[in-house]
Structures are given as structure tokens and as C-alpha cells.
Design a binder for these strands. Structure first.
Lengths: 339, 339
DNA sequence: AATATTGGTTTAATCGCTTAAACATCAATG
DNA sequence: CATTGATGTTTAAGCGATTAAACCAATATT
């Protein structure tokens, strides 16, 4: 026995298919009597409307696409990074509340995601992370409402949900300065023009400025945003030994690697080096000592993105919005006060 | 200018819609000449077929549902657990290679996932984790091909992808025994009938048996599978101080919490206690010391699940399959040899 | 009394695609 | 030379919904 269709329900209730549809959508007045009969039939047949068919006729899909970066072609590192998972979870949750489902795709080839968007008639897309310019160009063509998370793309076609990255590392750096540190290294991922890392460096510099501490180029260590890179940068730092007493890491995962690297070089945290991270990954609280870090409300990002996207879907003329979410410093055990 | 449809292509190429469809599907022979003209038109209009419409008529969806457990209603913890993210990533990847997209839903109310499955005409479902009996009963009704990952549900309707949990903890325990430990505690999550935790306890007992070490009920510490629980169980253990020298944790996250708990009680790993985990989370290698643990190939689980599911979709008469994936012990720094 | 309005329901077209069946051509067959 | 067979293409009927427009009673209006 195959799934019941609208027609089956109509037959059983002794009405036309249209009537059933109207009962379900409430777009026309239906007598209480027939309404009851239809609902009864729906119940009996355990009828569930086919969203595909509905979409075909309504020209929508109740489907939201989510694009996450694919670090390496063939690899799916982003899924291992709890940051992405947490945003995803949040998006899924809030979208579902509103009757939307999410279609995740981690594609490196932009083209392929574009195709997906059209094949599936996506009602909207949430793009997490930063991509090459070309990507934004292509995506724009789809005419699908799009919300960017954590992107500094300033094309006014897109809505934006971000944090103030510069302010975040400003907070981290200021915290160390207040604890008496003056020789503070900055660990970062690859600096791209207009990228997140660059912004975070900026905040670091601003804090130094404020405390009238000279910015030194050799205090900046650039690597990748991963654990191994943190280990390596820490190795470089201890080797160069310039009297540095603290580190601002532009990402928790870098900080975590750095702790290990320092440990390998016989140094301890916060004994020899104080360190502040950025992101507040779930792991960070589990370390010993706990990592002092800049916390962002990751799941709030997902929630806001969904809200904004749905608002746009409902009123397509919505002007570009940009929402900057709050940050806060979480003190744990990785920072020590010095004289 | 809206998206081009089959009809548009047909018009431009001067043929009927059916012809275009046949060119695309290759289900009828079409002369090279018209084929060329159609392809040219497709190119020009940048035509992409609408999968919804296609699905409506073909009675499929090229959509695979993935069910992940929702720890608490309203919470979405599973997404924060890197185990799930890694499996998800892998499923998405392999499904996409075969032209399928994945629809993730983390619902606690089984009913709601069932509805989703029917609304969207899912071609198949992959269920990760263990659920109440009732859930499997309901799911079966959908008649949709289903592959279970990490479930001991033995209803022969379902395919299964698992590891040998008992063997895993056997490996962990044997390793400690070989290193000279005889008083080994077992930290576990909640033991449910026929659940994963119970199986892991079994392996622990088997290893003890093999080494003719008496099993002691008071060496078993039961809690939840989360960090906090690990901390607490470690607290209990140190308080009871029964000469225990090692711990087998039935999950890495428990082990990680335990390390913290021991540290808080003034004990070190592996100095005072040796510890072996289970899962090999990404975090586990980043700890200091690294966690010795039982590694499973998480992404292989996703891959196998997709392969099996698609095989079933293609030949619906496929008898129930069960695949047990390999495990291996990864030695890091959390175990010390004793006399 | 004739007409307009309203509430409730059905008819039929449509969304974009697939596919069985019908239909042309043209070459090969008996 | 009529017939059969390939080959290539079109016609038209779905798939499961929505919805504008038509329809029918019954009631309200003038």
C-alpha cells in the first residue's frame, strides 16, 4: 500500500481534491462539516502532503542550502571542526522550527554548488566562511536570497552575520596587557586580503597602541589554522627567545597546538607563557589548564542567519542587513599576572 | 529571466520536450544531429534540470536522510560531538559522488522524522546511534531502505554498520594488562540493555578473564558519556582509593574528563594512573599527554553506510547485511608500564 | 420578482519532467 | 511491391500538489 495522496483523501471524504487542499491551507472558507470529514479522512489514511509536488506548483522548496568550506578537495575537514558543526546544528534547528529543511553541501568546486542550488530550487542559502571573489559573483546570479556568515565580502547583494574580529583580538590583547604583559606574540592563520586573520591582527595592534606598546613585526607568527601549525609556531617562538611572555592566538585550535609546542620545548602555560585564544571551542574548556579565550556565541550565529534569511524570503525587497554579534572574554587558567 | 525549463530548451532546439528528455537520459536512440542541437541549446540557456519535477515523475528524490540523536530536546549536542560531524561529513561526500544529497535532521520526536521521510520522499535513510525500540518499529513502516550505524537493533529489516565494541574494550584492557596493571577501573556511560556500553563492559571482562584477573563490581564506575561525568567519576575513584592503577574509559570524552578530575585530585596521568580511551576523537591527539585509545575509522563508517544503502536502493531485494569495521589500539602517552 | 451577494465547492489548467504508445521515415525483407 | 523492421521523434497522459475561475445554492438587496 503506497502512500496516500491528496486524491485518495478527497475520494474517501467524498469531496474534490481542491477542497482538501483548501482545508489544509485555509485559503478558502470551508464548512465545518466537510472540514471535519476531510480531517477524518486524512487521519485514517495517515496522509502526509508531498513537499515535492507542493513545491513544484508553489514554486518553492522549503529547502535551505548551507555551504561550508572544503579545506582540501576530497577532504572534509570542516566537519571535524566543531565550530562548523555547532553552527550547522543551530541552523538546522531554527530552520526546522519554521518548516524548512537544510541541505548541506561541502563543495570546493563552486560551480557544483550553484548547480545544486538550481536543481533543488533552494529557497535560500547560508554561506559559512570566506570564499574567492569569483564565488560570490557566481552565487549572485542565482537570484536566491543569501546570508553570509563570517565573511567580509562587501557586495551589497548579500546579508551578513559576523562578529567584530578586530574587537575580539583587541579584547584578548588588552587582557594580557592588563595582566602586565608587554612582549606579546601574535599567532595567526594565513593572512588574506580583507580576511578574518587580517582583522584580528588589527585588533591586536589597536590594543598595543592604546597601551603605548610598540608593535614588532617579528612578534607576528603566521601559519595555518590548525593544531600542527600551532605546535610549529610555538617551536619557532621558543627558538627565537626574544623575551616574549604571552601569546594571542587568532584561533583556539592554534592556541591548543601552541600549548603542546611549548610543552615540548620544556615550557609551561601559564608558568612560562600566558596565552589567550579565539573562538571558545568546546575543547577549550576541557584542557588543563582551561584556555582563556574570546568567546563568540556560535549557535547564535546560526539562529540569526536563519532569521534573517527567512525574513528576506518573505519580503524579497529587504535591504541588505549586517548584524555584528557580541563577543566576550572568558577567563580560564592560561593567563598569569606578571609584575 | 527565470530559469530555463525543458520546454525552453526544446523550443530553442526545435524539437519536442520528450526528445530533450531522451537526450539527457539516453533511454532512446537519438540522431547525432539532433543530439548536438539539443546540447547546444542546453548550453546556451544554461539549463539545469529540476530535480523536484524529475522526482515527482520518477517517484524518487535522490535524497538521503540522516538521523542523528538529539541528546536533549532543544539542545543539539550531537553536532558538537566530533564523532557525529565526522560521520556526517563522510556520508555527505560519498552520497554526493553518486548524485545524492543529504537531508540532516536531529529530531528527538521520532514522529517528526518519520513525517519528514515521507514529505520529502527520501530514497533512503541512514540512522546513527541507538534509539528506543519504538523508533525502529515506526521507521520500518515507511518501507524506505535504512542503514543503521552503531546500533545493536537486530531487527532483520535493517542493514547494520558497526564496530565490535566488545573487542575494542578488550583491546584497551589487554593493553593495560600487558603493561602490568591488575587493578583496572572501567568508566562507562549509562548501561542500557543491549547497548554499546554493555558490550564494552563485556570486552573488559573478557580481557580480565584471559589474564585470570578477578572482576570486581566496585571497579566499574557508571556515569554519562560526557566530559563532566568523567571528572566526577575520577573524583569518586580517587576518594575510594582501592589501589587502582589504571582506567579503561568507554569513551574518549569520559577519559578526557577523567584526566581533569584526577588532576584536580592532585593525581597525574600517566604518573599515578594510566588511562585508555575509546573512539579516538580528534581532540584526543591534542591532549598533553596524548590519549592512548581504541581508534575506529569514523569516516569509513559513513562511506560503508552510503555504499550499502545505495546498493539496496538499486536492488531492493538485497538481504540484510551486517558489516563490522576494524578497530585498532593507538598508543600515545597516557599509559605507563608498571612492574 | 428579479438581481446581486455570499459561502462553499468543483473544474480544469499548471508547475517541470518522464515515458508508454503512436507515428512517421526509410531501408531491408520475402 | 506490399510488408516488416529499425530508427528517430512526437503526442499525450501522468506524477501530486495549487489555484484562478466557474458554478451552484441559498440568502440579501432593491
Amino acid at each position: 500500500m503506497a502512500r496516500a495522496t491528496l486524491k485518495d483523501v478527497a475520494e474517501l471524504a467524498g469531496v474534490s481534491a481542491a477542497t482538501v487542499s483548501y482545508v489544509l491551507s485555509g485559503k478558502r472558507t470551508i464548512s465545518e462539516e466537510t472540514k471535519a470529514r476531510v480531517l477524518e479522512a486524512i487521519e485514517q489514511l495517515d496522509y502526509v502532503p508531498d513537499l515535492n509536488a507542493r513545491g513544484l506548483s508553489m514554486r518553492d522548496s522549503k529547502l535551505i542550502g548551507v555551504v561550508v568550506p572544503q579545506t582540501e578537495p576530497g577532504e572534509r575537514l570542516m566537519f571535524q571542526n566543531s565550530f562548523y558543526s555547532e553552527v550547522l546544528g543551530s541552523i538546522e534547528y531554527y530552520a526546522r522550527q519554521k518548516g524548512y529543511h537544510i541541505l548541506i553541501s561541502a563543495t570546493d568546486a563552486n560551480e557544483s554548488y550553484l548547480t545544486l542550488a538550481r536543481q533543488r530550487n533552494l529557497d535560500g542559502i547560508i554561506v559559512i566562511g570566506m570564499y574567492p571573489d569569483e564565488f560570490y559573483h557566481e552565487m549572485k546570479k542565482t537570484q536566491i536570497p543569501i546570508v553570509l556568515i563570517d565573511s567580509y565580502c562587501n557586495d551589497h547583494y548579500y546579508h551578513n552575520i559576523r562578529i567584530d574580529d578586530a574587537y575580539g583580538s583587541y579584547l584578548a590583547t588588552r587582557h594580557l596587557l592588563e595582566k602586565g604583559h608587554r612582549d606579546i606574540a601574535f599567532f595567526s592563520g594565513q593572512m588574506k586580503e580583507n580576511g578574518v586573520m587580517k582583522k584580528r591582527l588589527l585588533g591586536y595592534q589597536q590594543a598595543l597602541d592604546e597601551f603605548r606598546v610598540e608593535f614588532k613585526g617579528e612578534y607576528v607568527f603566521e601559519g595555518q589554522i590548525d593544531y600542527q601549525s600551532g605546535v610549529e609556531l610555538a617551536g619557532k617562538l621558543t627558538a627565537s627567545s626574544q623575551g616574549i611572555t604571552a601569546i594571542v592566538a587568532a584561533a583556539d585550535i592554534l592556541a591548543i597546538g601552541a600549548v603542546k609546542g611549548l610543552y615540548e620545548a620544556g615550557k609551561t602555560v601559564p608558568g612560562d607563557y600566558s596565552i589567550v585564544g579565539f573562538d571558545d571551542l568546546e575543547i577549550s574548556q576541557y584542557l588543563t589548564p582551561g584556555l582563556t579565550t574570546v568567546k563568540q556565541q556560535i549557535s547564535l550565529k546560526g539562529q540569526k542567519a536563519v532569521e534573517l534569511l527567512l525574513k528576506h524570503i518573505e519580503s524579497p525587497s529587504l535591504p541588505k542587513q549586517e548584524e555584528i554579534l557580541p563577543l566576550e572574554l572568558v577567563e580560564r587558567g592560561s593567563v598569569k599576572k606578571i609584575n
